[in-house]
Amino acid sequence: MLTDPDLTPEGRAWLDGVAGAEGWETAFTAAGRHVGRDHADAARVELLRVARPDAETLTRLYQRGDAAERRAVLLALPELPLGPEALPLVEDALRANDARLIAAALGPYAARHLDQHLWRHAVLKCVFIGVPIHEVAGLADRADIELARMARDFAAERAAAGRPVPDDVRHILSLVPDFPPVQEA
């Protein structure tokens, strides 16, 4: 659970005042200006945890949110009483190019609900754009031979270009012990 013990007393008081109150959606947008932008993720997630919005409200907040609001929606998903109905938000974030959104999309909610094909591509995208894959929830549980093949082929492509192979490729392969190792260039 994402909580923030470092909120200032003023920030805490503001958050306690708006959480669950009418107008909390406006507070969700402006949270960074009240608790400080470093604490905005935690404050927004707390607002969502208290309000327990349905998928329709979450979708509106995400679609009309800036990058920070979208990240907060994604971070909150595993803490909300949801089935797979919020998956379109995860899939939207995984189509983005913003590494922070992609990392936030691959939390425990995606680990639980995301289709295996899309999940593998998301992991490979992390390796491709440099999101550390230790941020991917459930990696060891879901890594399979097909993901290892994709990682090995990616490594071969990098090696052919004379470029370094990210360490995360080896990490993926180490999770699938039955798979042949990477050929070094």
Binding site: N97, D98, A99, I129, G130, A161, G162, R163, P164, P166
Partner: peptide
């Protein structure tokens, strides 16, 4: 290595 300056320069 990010999504904009995509990829590391060759030979680095």
């Amino acid at each position: 290595g990010n999504s904009i300056a995509r990829g590391a320069p060759a030979g680095r």
